[in-house]
Design a binder for these strands. Sequence first.
DNA 1: CATTCAATGTTACTTTTTCTTACATGATTT
DNA 2: AAATCATGTAAGAAAAAGTAACATTGAATG
Lengths: 129, 129
Amino acid sequence: MKEKELRRSLAVLPIGTVMKLTNLSARQIRYYEEQQLVTPKRNEGNRRMYSLNDIDRLLEIRDFLDEGINMAGIKHIYDDEARKKAQKKAQLEKPLTDTDVRKILRDEFMSVSGLARDDEFSFKHNKNF
Amino acid sequence: MKEKELRRSLAVLPIGTVMKLTNLSARQIRYYEEQQLVTPKRNEGNRRMYSLNDIDRLLEIRDFLDEGINMAGIKHIYDDEARKKAQKKAQLEKPLTDTDVRKILRDEFMSVSGLARDDEFSFKHNKNF
DNA sequence: CATTCAATGTTACTTTTTCTTACATGATTT
DNA sequence: AAATCATGTAAGAAAAAGTAACATTGAATG
């Protein structure tokens, strides 16, 4: 469903439309952008252009505000989300390095065997593992 | 899926966006409207606002033109479509009459059996079928 | 071949929309 | 009370879009 994703991220809506769809004022919408909660594209003439994803985000912001959460709170929520997403993505993108694999195996081994001493069973410095 | 239908018919796009999405000039888009091939909404300020359905329609028109079909031809196609759709809708709204049922059955029978002659197998004038 | 017509381009001028910036205001928070 | 947050409002400039008229081009037709 890559197609749908693309459509939802297409910046095709002017701010006037967004105002109607979200019941937010232009001032509010621009302010939320200033606060980095949305990042609309700009067209050649410097007009803000919004995607369906942006609309969703703005509706969500509106709901958060209605719930009494302030800008800082909302920012925090989105920062959290972004961090988690970035981490998950990073994991999926590049497969584990050798070092990662060694670390995971060692950790696994340790937790299973209960070994935690730097003894003959340690993998430390064992480049051939 | 009434939700989706609604979204697709929401007039949210200004002509500038439509130009980009369809690769048509403003002149072309307005001309097709003049020819009644599309009927965008207008906002309070009299600016044309298009829906996703309108976009589809315009892309289709573009394709027809590319195929060498002229306005008249395209109009005809859409008129046909509209007539068929209206008919189907009318059918769905009020259940079939006895006459309709008889006609449908006869047509079906004819096409299956290959009979087309006015002979002893004909249902013509057989009110009791 | 000259004419006509359909489809589109172009230009001029007006109105609407959007932009930025600055200042104002009513709640909170400190 | 002073500061800060979220939003409103106003001014002036730039961009987008509207209509209307005339221009161009390619295809069909007498």
